[in-house]
């Protein structure tokens, strides 16, 4: 509290009015006080100007430093590339050796693929031909799809329909669930039909054809283009 507070509302103290005395000392005139503030203000402005200039200078230095760092990194990258490229060129014999080895292993892989194709064709002939093989594969795939899709879903449905929770539901809700699950079953059946149609189309395409190197590569998961580049 100071002297501007309501009269007699400030706590009684021996130091009453001391604060105001400090701010506005009776030994100094008001003009002197103002002049003191002006001087302090000037100092403050000067100081903030200096800070601003320092800040500007710092920013410029930082920008210059960042640019130099970028250049440094770029040169380092180029130097690294050049040094490695020179090393590769200088070790020319090593590079030729890599090319020789590529040819060697391509030869091994091609010979291996030829052997595998002959072997596969012999087995296919024993089975009754390529078309017969595809038919058998189609049948196997059909059985697999039947087992995977229909059986699983139908088992699930039966379990749900026989459960106590389901039987406890009102008749309307039971019918709603039945409809939903039948819809799911129809979707699954459609999907299965599509898969089988795809397989049948593939079989028709292969009619009268023989196993090719590309087909064999696909079946034994070999990269045909790597072994037989065009």
């Amino acid at each position: 509290m100071d002297d501007t507070t309501i009269i007699n509302s400030s706590p009684v103290s021996d130091q009453k009015g001391k604060n105001s005395m400090e701010i506005c000392s009776p030994t100094k005139t008001p003009v002197e006080s103002v002049s003191k503030y002006k001087t302090a203000g000037k100092h403050l402005v000067q100081k903030s100007r200096e800070t601003l200039e320092d800040h500007k200078l710092n920013t410029q230095t930082r920008l210059l430093y960042n640019e130099l760092s970028k250049q440094k990194n770029l040169y380092k990258k180029h130097i690294d590339n050049l040094a490695q490229a020179i090393k590769i060129i200088k070790a020319g014999e090593k590079e030729s050796r890599v090319l020789e080895l590529i040819e060697k292993w391509r030869g091994v892989a091609q010979a291996g693929m030829s052997f595998m194709l002959n072997s596969a064709m012999l087995k296919i002939t024993k089975l009754g031909g390529y078309e017969e093989l595809l038919k058998k594969e189609l049948e196997a795939e059909r059985r697999k799809l039947d087992y995977q899709i229909n059986d699983n879903l139908q088992d699930d449905m039966e379990q749900v329909f026989e459960s106590e929770e389901f039987l406890a539901l009102p008749e309307e809700m039971q019918q709603e669930y039945r409809d939903q699950m039948n819809e799911q079953l129809r979707e699954v059946q459609n999907r299965k039909d599509k898969e089988i149609a795809k397989l049948e189309a593939k079989m028709k395409e292969s009619a009268g054809q023989e196993m090719t190197m590309q087909e064999l590569s696909r079946r034994i998961k070999m990269d045909y283009m790597l072994i037989f580049p065009e």
Binding site: I88, V98, I102, W105, F115, D223
Partner: peptide, 23 residues
């Protein structure tokens, strides 16, 4: 030069793997 070198090494490795698998 570097890319070509790396490509050749990769090709060698892949062909070697294929050759060994087939044999």
């Amino acid at each position: 030069v570097m890319d070509q070198h790396i490509k050749r090494l990769k090709e060698y490795n892949e062909l070697r793997d294929a050759g060994l698998r087939l044999t």
